[in-house]
Design a protein around this nucleic acid. Sequence first.
DNA 1: CGCGGCATGGATCTCGACGACGACGCCTGC
DNA 2: GCAGGCGTCGTCGTCGAGATCCATGCCGCG
Lengths: 178, 178
Amino acid sequence: MSPPEASRPARLILSRLDTPIGEALVVTDEDGVLRAFDFADYEDRMRRLMRRHYGEQPIAEGEVPAELVHVFGRYFAGDLDALDALEMRTNGTLFQRRVWAALRTIPAGQTLSYKQLAERIGSPKAVRAVGLANGANPVALVAPCHRVIGANGGLTGYGGGLHRKRWLLVHEGAHFAS
Amino acid sequence: MSPPEASRPARLILSRLDTPIGEALVVTDEDGVLRAFDFADYEDRMRRLMRRHYGEQPIAEGEVPAELVHVFGRYFAGDLDALDALEMRTNGTLFQRRVWAALRTIPAGQTLSYKQLAERIGSPKAVRAVGLANGANPVALVAPCHRVIGANGGLTGYGGGLHRKRWLLVHEGAHFAS
DNA sequence: CGCGGCATGGATCTCGACGACGACGCCTGC
DNA sequence: GCAGGCGTCGTCGTCGAGATCCATGCCGCG
């Protein structure tokens, strides 16, 4: 159901990618597989997450792998499903990995409420916990936590700033309140 | 009685010094005051100690301050009291600092047993604890933990290796068994 | 003697318990 | 509607208790 815990990477490489909504941080491992995606104005939180998941290991600066440049470029250019097949590796608790896996079952253009997401992973009452896990998602966009909104259709919150959540949902043609 | 806990240093500088008993590690703070002295073959332990006392702070490489080169040189050349006036700063628990301060009251050429040292700091039964604190001494030579030996005159143990303890005691003209 | 066993005390590590905290949702009372 | 209160549940930080580890010393036994 949820993917297995990812092994401790031999190396972590941090690179930076320009997007229409600001500079993004891309962390990959020695196989070039994505370990984190976040926005540059939240670099502190991203580093804290990496430390939590992988220990004190230093993070080297590098280039964004060509395949990732290509795939994110397509997504922002309007090919909304471009990220669906992209491999990602995450650590985290069983519950978190369940939530993050469930996120990828929401197609672009659609949204889900925190409640519906909680039901989908079999813990119908763990609504706020789902919110917490959403906030701890290391791989924004690829695990599309921006597609989860309040039961009343409002945007509630987003780790990258509400303006980005709004932009992404508009970009994907989803419906939401105000 | 025991010196106050040293403040967190602004900077730590690690330098290396040749001695008749092998390369030594010298750690100084931004004032050039000694924070650690150990032998190069135990660099791991030294770094662990620094981390414990001063946190994750990185340690820069640098040159041994001229005064220290001079003073250690004199000690190894036979001026056995050359280190007596040297300033040092240590962190650690109250008990540890009491032990380390008491070490400096043992003159070169003399020895004390762990028991006598325990009595000297007012905890006559904390004999093994004194041994532990001795092993956690960050400032070898300057806090002369090598002058503490077993009640039967044997050398027991030394963080820098027994051969160094033996060499130092011979160098200082102290008496000990076998 | 030499050896084994045991008391002794501080530091460190590990665990489990506990409390606080949310990117919510629902119900109530105006 | 809308503001406020509360149930709910996984995380994380903190704290404290208990076990373990030792650079010992002493006693008792062969």
